[in-house]
Design a protein around this nucleic acid. Structure first.
Lengths: 242, 242
DNA sequence: CATATAGTGACAAAATTTGGCACTAATATG
DNA sequence: CATATTAGTGCCAAATTTTGTCACTATATG
């Protein structure tokens, strides 16, 4: 059963009053005692911790820390949160990384089940290299956030990605690739993708990608990306080679 | 109406097929055409963008970017995400701060309505000072994340907070205060609170707080915290004074 | 023991959702 | 233009789910 409006009212009332009897709750909510008991049951099933005590002076009590909230996020927003937290975690600069992780795990759980594995793998593939001091990251110019949704759809839906790429020599080509990972080596971002035309993994510098678009209907199966020297030495990634 | 299991099936099917007719969807989902149309209506109401075209070769098509996911987060997790993003935003080190903000705005919207204002105000009060390079933040030792849930409940529920405080001279006192804000001046964290016993705002260094606990039932009304010199000059915050 | 409280099971009443049907509107095709 | 195909709407009865009522058990307090 879903958590509905009345459940929310019950939770709010319990948060306010601390302890309350079921009868009082029923009266406040405008439902029967039986229904409130059923709702409490549903809330417990949903993970809310509700203590209860029988006898005079007893009642039900909500553990405030167990209160959950439902948020409706679109994939882009989930993605942004993921990147925020992943970057933070990689940089190990907050003691809250674990907590944030727990929150993200729940977001993942709420995603269509067949997407979770991909998302998790994507996160695993989101390598954050040695961070420069924050000041350097702030002018991250080369990565245009407006392009993000396209990449994100491609990753989550496993769709081929087509884009214009200008290589280090200025030559422009059209690519159709299987996006595999994003590599963040601040302040530069890279797309790691399998290029079927060249039968090889390639690293594309984000700032050199333009007009990215998903190819509708053309999906691929994820591969594991080996970050090994024979693909492209990471040490060269910040250099002129892309 | 809530987004239920069947809606999810429809969304997944649409994401996979790209375009589909209502009849095909109905067959796949195992419901009548009428019901599927009703579901599509509900999804649109919920913000999903579903294009449709009449006539032969027509059908319905889901805009993948509009796909939303419901996440159930407890307050601690929301809090952790908030802090992550707030810190990131303050440091302006990611181009995604706005996106993440949008996601958090939705999370806030899903919170019990009477808590949103407080939460927003809390975020406003979450001052992040001049950030040191990340390396310095990583040894943030003085702030014990295990204490976070207590603070967070106190903030969200507007409960008095009782704790042991060891001041700079080593003297230990028990405090009962109204938590007003958290101030982050990496690598140090401060609790800004109104101390009714002293009728004044005080700044408590997080690392000097021990055994914090909410005082159940004892709530306060939020005040605006003036970060002005007459309370405690920010310039002195990193010094011995607390 | 009497009272107050949480919690359960069963069943009918009430409310909501679903399916079927007839219909309109739009668009492509011959 | 006629026809077929598709989205979408309004209505109503059938199907399903939720709710309320009642009788009940269990536990704690005085």
């Amino acid at each position: 059963m879903n958590i509905r409006l009345r459940h929310d009212t019950i939770v709010r009332s319990l948060r306010r009053t601390g302890t309350s009897t079921v009868d009082a709750l029923a009266q406040e909510v405008g439902a029967s005692r039986r229904t409130v008991l059923r709702d409490i049951c549903a809330l417990r099933d949903a993970g809310f911790v509700i203590h209860s005590e029988t006898g005079p002076g007893g009642g039900v009590q909500l553990d405030p820390q167990s209160v959950q909230t439902t948020a409706r996020l679109n994939v882009t927003e989930v993605f942004a949160l993921l990147i925020s937290v992943a970057t933070m975690r990689a940089a190990q600069n907050l003691p809250f990384a674990d907590l944030a992780d727990a929150g993200l795990a729940k977001i993942e759980k709420a995603l269509p089940s067949d997407k979770v594995r991909d998302l998790r793998r994507f996160l695993d593939c989101l390598h954050v290299g040695q961070l420069s001091p924050l000041q350097d990251i702030s002018n991250i110019g080369p990565m245009d956030p407006a392009l993000l949704p396209t990449f994100e759809v491609a990753f989550l839906e496993k769709l081929y990605l087509r884009f214009q790429y200008t290589d280090a020599k200025g030559a422009q080509t059209t690519r159709e690739v299987e996006p595999q990972a994003m590599l963040i080596l601040p302040p530069l971002w890279y797309l790691v993708a399998w290029d079927p035309a060249r039968k090889d993994f390639r690293h594309f510098r984000m700032g050199r990608i333009s007009q990215p678009e998903c190819i509708p209907g053309k999906t691929f199966r994820h591969r594991h990306v080996p970050f090994e020297d024979d693909v492209c030495p990471l040490s060269e990634m910040n250099g002129p080679r892309s």
